[in-house]
């Protein structure tokens, strides 16, 4: 999984670890000195080729959003390395401003990621004010053009609207436009369609794909929806409780899923076609707490194929076929 030609990758994450200290009350801090941590992300590694879309798929609590935020420098990792466009972003000499110009984030909820008191035009202008040297006139031109690019036309009418005057889909377009307006090379799209109405979802996914092709973007797509990942992504990492359990091309993941968790995920997605009847493999129980994750393989308490070794040792992510990695003792 460690590529020889580093310059074909836009993003390279190596051994990423992020623990969050558990917030404790003042009193309980006095009583016990022991600090507890949420093991949000635990040695995660992946790479994204230039101009490709890589999806992080997993349920809530899998650490996918934390991973995404670390890769654009919104969260400092506990340890590990993130290289964007050839530069380690957590080394001191990397200028924050340079990083922001290169790496942007599309937030999940278009309702709360736009300031309700700022007009669409102001919201789109903000990155340009802080991150570019464009004059006021130039900024307005760039914003207008961007609005047209994301199909919010006539641009002049959208420019002076407030977020609450837009529909959910239009708001998401604004959020996407804001992330792309300074022409970043790398964008994290965090659940870009989760909060959007079903009939508008395909529009938004197509918009992202179009923009990605046009600007040659590299995208990290974060989603809980396997179908969204299958439609958009070139490669996929399946995460469970802070670890990557399986990684490969979209084709490999869906036509030959190896990890029991990936299998369970795929088989439990409700299929919008009553003709398709499948044997569901639903693991019992729910995702355990990330404060004290299970010993050994993190999936072992819910795994139907568990054996002795799974509870004692942590499986490594191994390459089973070219580009297809799995972390499971079955293989």
């Amino acid at each position: 999984m460690h590529a020889t030609f580093t310059d074909e990758f836009m993003v390279s994450v190596e051994g990423l670890v992020k623990y969050f200290p558990v917030q404790k009350s003042f009193i309980s801090q006095l009583i016990s000195r022991k600090r507890e941590y949420v093991h949000a992300v635990d040695s995660v590694s992946f790479q994204i080729r230039k101009g490709k879309i890589h999806a992080l798929v997993g349920e809530s609590g899998s650490g996918k959003t934390t991973t995404g935020k670390v890769t654009v420098g919104l969260i400092e990792p506990t340890s590990g390395k993130v290289v964007i466009d050839g530069r380690d972003i957590f080394k001191d000499e990397v200028d924050r401003r340079e990083l922001r110009k290169k790496a942007q984030y599309i937030f999940q909820d278009p309702n709360s990621s736009l300031n309700p008191r700022m007009k669409v035009g102001q919201a789109l202008e903000e990155p340009l004010i802080h991150l570019s040297d464009a004059t006021k006139q130039e900024r307005k031109e760039i914003v207008m053009k961007m609005l047209e690019d994301v199909n919010l036309s006539p641009a002049a009418s959208f420019y002076s609207r407030y977020p609450h005057e837009l529909s959910g889909g239009q708001r998401q377009r604004v959020v996407i436009a804001r992330a792309l307006i300074i022409q970043p090379k790398y964008v994290v799209a965090d659940e870009p369609v989760a909060m959007v109405d079903a009939s508008v979802r395909a529009q938004i996914m197509d918009l992202l794909i179009t923009m990605q092709k046009r600007l040659g973007l590299t995208i990290l797509l974060i989603t809980h929806d396997l179908a969204v990942a299958s439609y958009m992504a070139d490669t996929i990492s399946v995460m469970y409780l802070g670890k990557i359990v399986e990684q490969g091309s979209t084709e490999q993941i869906f036509s030959n899923p190896l990890h029991p968790y990936t299998n369970a995920l795929i088989s439990s997605v409700p299929v919008p076609d009553p003709k398709v009847k499948r044997e569901k493999q639903i693991p019992h129980g729910e995702v355990p707490s990330a404060i004290r994750p299970p010993e050994g393989c993190r999936f072992n308490p819910r795994c139907p194929y568990r054996f002795d070794r799974c509870t004692r040792e942590v499986p490594e992510l191994l390459e089973l076929e070219e580009g297809h990695f799995v972390s499971c003792f079955l293989y």
Partner: peptide
């Protein structure tokens, strides 16, 4: 709220 985080992403500093 996400829009504060989004502002950080847009390069805004603490005072801004």
């Amino acid at each position: 709220l996400q829009y504060v985080e989004a502002a950080k992403c847009s390069g805004a500093n603490t005072l801004s």
